[in-house]
Design a binder for these strands. Structure first.
Lengths: 225, 225
DNA sequence: TTAATTTTGTTCAATATAGTACAAAAACAT
DNA sequence: ATGTTTTTGTACTATATTGAACAAAATTAA
């Protein structure tokens, strides 16, 4: 039962000294630092602990490895968005949680601010590299759709006005995410970006957005003045 | 009178075969395409028409040339923002004009979409390169302040609510600009980004924002329904 | 016309990088 | 134990790239 899904019988020859998932994770870190073009295969070799021929055998060339790193990051990003927006927390809180979760990635505890891997590295390559451009575009759209789904639910639940446009608002919410992704790498402080995110949430959700934190769970969504 | 300001008397030796301003402009184009790391000195040499020794003599190394290109672009960007927001056009119109002016740069008439030079190339380098990071941060702030100044005027003129926070709104308006900068390079259509910009303008200016385009120049800023 | 000055253009050396070839090593199958 | 298979690790080649050296060219000053 397990042999057909996970382990294809038994691997025949010398066992690999690395775990593919881990290797891609470490390669991602390397690309994240210097970007795609400035990251040499030697740097990737050192980051993954694999020597160059093993890298080629396992992933193909540098480009293929980068695409694999993008795929992995995009999937994790979408999962993080869904996790932040998932359970039935009020919309402003959920959005703030999403932005905080992003900032936690953009400001690693032990290193300098690095921003978003996708935006911080793929945007540069996207101009001349069709595969990167399409992966980047698809990734951004995937994030959009995760947010849009939550906003659609919010509209259905009355958390948003009846005439609200979830798709358009998702575009704005994504724009806030993008500015965080950029500015964290550009040297802005985490506190400043939290404030930007909060301002964005307030604008998206309307003036009635909670301000005191956990206090007003049962806030009113007034429509008048 | 002119000798001390523009032309320092007369240049002594062989005249240069290039104009520094033009050379930086062409170098900018080259960097814009492939990014900083992937642009070789040979590519810069070809783009500028200068051979490598002349490049070194004129600007120093590749890094210094890139910084000069960033400076020039940032100054032009600020000028474009001020021009778009300058005269006394209503706020929503002015913001849309700013975004349109940005999109005109991001989608060159004769080439593929290229996005924003600053965001499309400097963000990647910013992580490990202090000078680029500081220039990028200063550039983004310069743009912010241009927008914020207009929003402050808008508040004084009653175009924004009395309790509006111009600085915070400028952060949002910049975020919209950033998302356009990214997404244009990521393959999004210009029409889609114009719609995103319009949605952002509407949210920033309030529901009373104009919708009909050039038709309602004399719209009312009603407070009611 | 001659000297001085600055830029240009060719050439070269040093290094880095990508990609591959090939032998050694570590496992399984018989 | 012996052979087969797959991965590892070293070494090598080809190319690209940076940065500088140096002679030729174009101009002004005397």
């Amino acid at each position: 039962m397990r042999s057909s899904t996970k382990t294809p019988a038994k691997p025949r020859g010398r066992p690999r000294a690395y775990e593919p998932e881990q290797a891609i994770a470490h390669a991602t870190e390397a690309f994240w630092h210097a970007g795609y073009a400035a990251t040499s295969l030697d740097a990737l070799s050192e980051a993954t602990g694999m020597n160059r021929p093993s890298l080629y055998a396992a992933f193909g060339d540098k480009h293929a490895l980068y695409l694999a790193a993008l795929d992995r990051y995009i999937a994790a990003g979408r999962a993080a968005i869904d996790a932040a927006l998932g359970d039935d927390v009020p919309l402003p809180r959920a959005l703030k949680r999403m932005y905080d979760s992003a900032l936690a990635m953009y400001y690693p505890p032990d290193d300098d601010a690095r921003g978003c891997f996708l935006i911080g590295t793929a945007v540069t390559e996207a101009k001349d590299d069709v595969e990167v451009r399409e992966k980047l575009g698809a990734g951004l759209r995937l994030f959009d759709h995760g947010i849009e789904a939550r906003l659609q639910r919010a509209k259905a639940l009355g958390e948003l006005d009846a005439d609200a446009d979830p798709a358009a608002l998702a575009g704005i919410a994504s724009a806030i995410l993008h500015t965080l992704a950029l500015r964290s790498r550009a040297g802005d402080s985490r506190a400043a970006l939290r404030a930007t995110a909060a301002a964005g949430v307030q604008l998206i959700c309307g003036k009635a957005a909670e301000k005191g934190g956990a206090a007003n769970r049962t806030r009113k969504r007034s429509g008048g003045s």
